[in-house]
Amino acid sequence: MSSGGPYDPYNPYQPPPQYPPPYGPPQPPPPHPYGYPPPYLPPQPPPPTSLWGSLRGLRGAEWPPLRVLLRGGRDRIHGCVWVAALLPCTAFLTLPLMAGYVFARSARHRAHLLFPPRGHRRIEDPDVARVQRVRAWTAVAMSVLLLVVYGKPEDVSEAQQQYMTRLAVTPPLLLLSGPVVITFLFRMASPAAKAYMRPRLRAAGRSALAYVGAVTALPLLVVGLVMVEVRGRGDLDPGFPWAQLALTAPFFWLLFFLAFATGPAVRTGFNSAGVHAALPALLTAVLVWEFTLISLVTGGLPPGPPAVQVLAVLAGPLSVTAVVRWELHRLRTRHGVTLRA
Rank of each mutant, 00 (worst) to 15 (best):
A259M: 14
W242G: 01
P238K: 03
F252V: 08
F256R: 03
D237E: 11
F260G: 03
A246F: 08
L255Q: 06
F257M: 05
G239N: 13
A249N: 02
G234S: 15
G234I: 15
W253K: 04
F251P: 01
P250C: 07
A261F: 05
F260E: 09
W242S: 06
T248V: 06
A261P: 09
F252P: 06
G234P: 00
L245E: 07
A249E: 05
L247T: 02
P241S: 11
Q244K: 14
F252S: 03
D235M: 11
W242D: 13
W242A: 12
F260M: 06
L236H: 13
F256T: 00
A259N: 14
R233V: 07
A246G: 10
T248G: 02
L236N: 12
W242Q: 13
A249C: 10
D235Q: 10
A249M: 09
T248N: 02
A243W: 10
D235F: 14
T248H: 01
L247N: 00
W242V: 10
L247V: 02
G234H: 14
L245P: 01
G239T: 06
L258G: 05
A249R: 04
F251Q: 04
P250S: 04
F251T: 08
P241Y: 12
T262Q: 11
F240V: 05
L258E: 01
P241I: 12
T262C: 03
F256A: 05
A259Q: 14
L236G: 13
F251E: 00
F256D: 08
R233G: 09
L255F: 12
L245W: 09
P241W: 14
P241F: 12
W242I: 10
